[in-house]
Write a protein that binds this DNA or RNA. Sequence first.
DNA 1: CGGCAAACCTGCGAGC
DNA 2: TGCTCGCAGGTTTGCC
Length: 280
Amino acid sequence: MPELPEVETVCRSLRGRLEGRRLKSVDVRRRKLRLPLPPDFAARVAGRRVVTVARRGKYILMPLDDKVAIIAHLGMSGRMTLTEGPPPVPGPHDHVIFETDDGASLVFNDARRFGLMTLADVDGIDAHPLFRGMGPEPLADAFDGRLLGQALDSRNTAVKTALMDQRVVAGIGNIYACEALFRAGISPRRKAKNLGGARCRGLAAALKRVLTEAIEAGGSSLRDYRRPSGELGTFQHRFAVYGREGEACPGCCCDLRETGGIRRILQGGRATFFCPSRQR
DNA sequence: CGGCAAACCTGCGAGC
DNA sequence: TGCTCGCAGGTTTGCC
């Protein structure tokens, strides 16, 4: 599923329900995910209070009251499901199940097991291997064209590929890279290093806008992604280019038969969708 | 440093 | 109906 807007949506739901609650029980049903869960995961988490739920890039952070944080990543197919009452009967890919002191249940489910869940000390967490070297948060106030330009400048690769590199900007995946480049009118094939100041400013603004709108829509639900409530996100209905090969570009007035509409190419093994006439 | 393929897994839709 | 193939929102590793 999840890029920044989906993870942010999940974090907000979890924060609203779990913040300040104590984790009464923890049931680890499968340890082998992208990283194996620590052997003492359940013992270290059970009985602790959740201080808050935060996000860094595509990671969910749940600092506990003993300065240890649960770190979770949803990979491609991971889901966090929040329900009232005791935990439901575990399904086939329910890997970790939490129950709070006030009767809520949280299930971490991940069919493809590209996700992970682990623990880390809150102090110095930025130096943790999962976060060290991670790029700036695109929704932070400090993120602007200058900062983006700095990050892209050293990259001798296509701007689309660079955007998806978590060391350049945190939280951008295939969908929002395509959508932001469309909004900024920049060809995904353009080299990252020579975008220039004006394009960097436009791209930084486009990223902020598309991510903010997607969060307001509860994220994009294509296959697996659901909000913790079970609801679908709705931003997939507002994609301009993603998954729309051959369709008319929403910003173009040209004849579809002449332009061929939105194109799909492969970059770094990933599908890129763009409008060749509007994105230069 | 960059590009590319493969690996980790399962599920789903398309096509035969 | 049922099978195989290709593809999927992510990240890491190894090779050239």
